[in-house]
């Protein structure tokens, strides 16, 4: 195995393009190094992208934020404006592993590891975030929902890697939230994850909503049918019940060591409802803040 630590995106792209064997990007390394140590993968080349300054930045762009692929969860949490705009995404990223893991783990890494249970991905999908992919050819922008196809599988082509993730601007009275179910309070892989992003109108009616579920299918799901139920409503009890039922119905989980089909379906609805309530509260809080 070779280790390279390029200082520019183009240099990194060249290294990847030249490599004939198995190449892997090292960002936080919290999945990669575990997989290497357990013998799951034996890469020929590891490209550490943490020496590329551009990838260590959180940049304002078109009212949103572009988060570099090497930015850790802990660094995101220290960025006040990002936390204010997309609190659910930042929280989701900082549910990954321990404080120690959050000091290294990145959104891009969580996305490219392509686990159906990845914590930040449902939040990113709900946020309609877009990954910028670079490689041998011209860069391209790929919506996060289209980045993965199944466990461990991404749509990245040979030599390509994620350079950054773009979180768009938000309308007034918007909020997001991510909740996951784990047996303990920390350190577990999500048994179910639910990300909600929504916007309210002046009267507190929901004008836009997205729901995403994790760990209940081979890849993270965008559940448009459930989200539509919220639109036009005041998020009253009855709507939320229907919303939860639609979320449960959309879940297509399996039985495994972390949970059962029944449990995951049921809890999908519970978390979707709870996340929607938090997102709505946040949407209203942003309005209050705006008035100040």
């Amino acid at each position: 195995m070779r280790y390279e630590a390029p200082t520019s995106v183009s240099e990194a792209a060249k290294l990847l393009a030249k490599e004939k064997g198995l190449a892997r990007i090292l960002a936080g390394g919290t999945d990669l190094i575990v997989q290497m140590k357990s013998g799951m993968i034996e890469p020929d080349l590891v490209v550490d992208i943490k020496r590329i300054d551009a990838l260590k930045r959180i940049k304002k762009e078109k009212g949103g934020f572009r988060v570099g692929a090497a930015v850790s969860g802990a660094e995101m949490e220290e960025h006040e404006e990002l936390c204010a705009l997309w609190p659910g995404v930042v929280e989701a990223t900082n549910l990954i592993g321990s404080t120690q893991v959050q000091g290294r783990a990145t959104m891009a890494g969580n996305l490219c590891n392509a686990s159906p249970a990845a914590d930040c991905v449902p939040a990113l999908v709900a946020a309609d975030a877009v990954a910028r992919v670079v490689g041998p050819k011209k860069g391209r922008d790929v919506p996060v929902i289209k980045m993965t196809t199944g466990p461990g599988k991404t749509t990245l082509k040979r030599g390509e890697f994620v350079e950054s993730i773009f979180l768009p601007s938000r309308k007034k009275r918007s909020g997001d939230a991510y909740l996951r179910f784990i047996p303990r309070t920390e350190m577990d892989i999500a048994v179910v994850g639910a990300g909600v992003s929504l916007t309210l109108d002046k009267n507190g009616k929901c004008s836009d909503a997205r729901l995403s579920l994790g760990a209940v299918a081979a890849k993270v799901l965008l559940v448009e049918r459930a989200a539509k139920i919220l639109i036009g409503s005041n998020l009253d009890e009855e709507t939320l019940e229907k919303f939860a039922a639609a979320a449960s119905a959309a879940a297509k989980p399996i039985d495994d060591k972390r949970g059962t089909v029944d449990f995951r379906k049921k809890v999908s609805g519970v978390l979707a409802r709870r996340a929607a309530i938090i997102a709505a509260e946040r949407a209203m809080t942003t309005e209050k803040k705006g008035k100040k």
């Binding site: 047996p183 303990r184 309070t185 920390e186 350190m187 577990d188 892989i189 060591k257 972390r258």
Partner: peptide, 8 residues
């Protein structure tokens, strides 16, 4: 220790 869950 990921899936053998001792209290944290």
């Amino acid at each position: 220790f990921l899936d053998y869950r001792i209290p944290v």
